[in-house]
């Protein structure tokens, strides 16, 4: 989709992806799969056969690879929305500090220290 520079949302905030219509369209299948993880039966089905579960939801190759790699930044790039991705992270028992560390190249402890440093 072409960019629409006249719109309010088209500004650059470093390290931040604005989840707008463009991202929502790109990530629809991925987010729909992650939304399904609200239900325990779907979390179990994913754990039992990740490839089949991704296929069922129609993920594209980029999304599948980012899921396989547990690559949070890659999932955002592929259209993932953090609120749904949080449910994916939950399957592995990851906290938002773990996920923050993964995205910023910090250990979880380093990420917690960074949060505290802003007090």
């Amino acid at each position: 989709m072409a960019d629409m520079p006249a719109f309010d949302y088209h500004i650059d905030i470093p390290g931040t992806t604005i989840f707008d219509g463009k991202q929502a369209m790109k990530g629809y299948a991925l987010n729909k799969m992650c939304y399904s993880f609200n239900k325990a039966e779907n979390r179990e089905a994913f754990k039992a056969d990740e490839e089949a579960f991704m296929e069922k939801y129609g993920l594209n190759d980029q999304q599948k690879q980012a899921i396989r790699d547990r690559n949070v930044l890659g999932l955002i790039e592929a259209g993932g929305n953090i609120y749904y991705l949080a449910k994916f992270a939950g399957i592995f028992g990851l906290s938002v500090q773990d996920v923050g560390g993964l995205q910023t190249g910090r250990s979880t402890e380093e990420f917690k220290d960074y949060l505290k440093s802003q007090a």
């Binding site: 390290g15 931040t16 992806t17 930044l73 955002i76 996920v99 007090a119």
Partner: peptide
């Protein structure tokens, strides 16, 4: 607060 992206962890007192 910000949960996502390279700017995750951002807080602005």
């Amino acid at each position: 607060h910000q949960l996502d992206g390279q700017r995750a962890g951002f807080i602005n007192k």
